[in-house]
């Protein structure tokens, strides 16, 4: 069985921006957390580093959907990444690391994705 890393608190409910993303820091890494009130999952998190531009800007991208699948568009050159699995629609060989995010009461928490756990264990 995989060993789960624990949830890490990165902020409060009030730090989120409806319909958009915010950045958060976990150690040396930066992640992007999106709050889509109208989507079933509501909270999505990805790495903040754009794999194409090499800079931490994903949280600034516009979120939306492609055929019902929630996506974020990188703000520099508008590549679209799935918020479900991180794959890039324009360049399927590239993907954005996915994180998990949740609200525990007022507490905004993230943790590294399961797949990373499996590789580590």
């Amino acid at each position: 069985m995989s060993e789960h890393s624990s949830w890490i608190s990165v902020g409060k409910r009030g730090d989120l921006v409806p319909g958009a993303g915010v950045g958060a820091r976990v150690g040396q890494q930066q992640i992007a957390i999106f709050w889509l009130e109208e989507s079933p999952e509501q909270l999505y998190a990805t790495a903040n580093l754009c794999p194409f531009a090499g800079v931490n800007i994903i949280a600034r991208g516009i979120v939306g959907d492609i055929g019902g699948e929630p996506v974020v568009a990188s703000p520099l050159h508008k590549e679209h990444f799935s918020l479900l699995d991180g794959r890039c629609f324009e360049h399927p060989e590239v993907s954005l690391p996915i994180w998990q995010a949740r609200l525990q009461g007022d507490d905004l928490q993230v943790r590294e994705p399961e797949i990373m756990q499996l590789l580590v264990s």
Binding site: V17, G19, A20, V55, R60, I62, V63, P75
Partner: peptide, 21 residues
């Protein structure tokens, strides 16, 4: 009123984003 989330990055942050962010 929720319009910030509609704007392209430059409009959302009222400045012009350059290649290094």
């Amino acid at each position: 009123e929720g319009r910030a989330a509609l704007q392209d990055t430059n409009d959302a942050f009222l400045a012009n984003m350059q290649k290094d962010g």
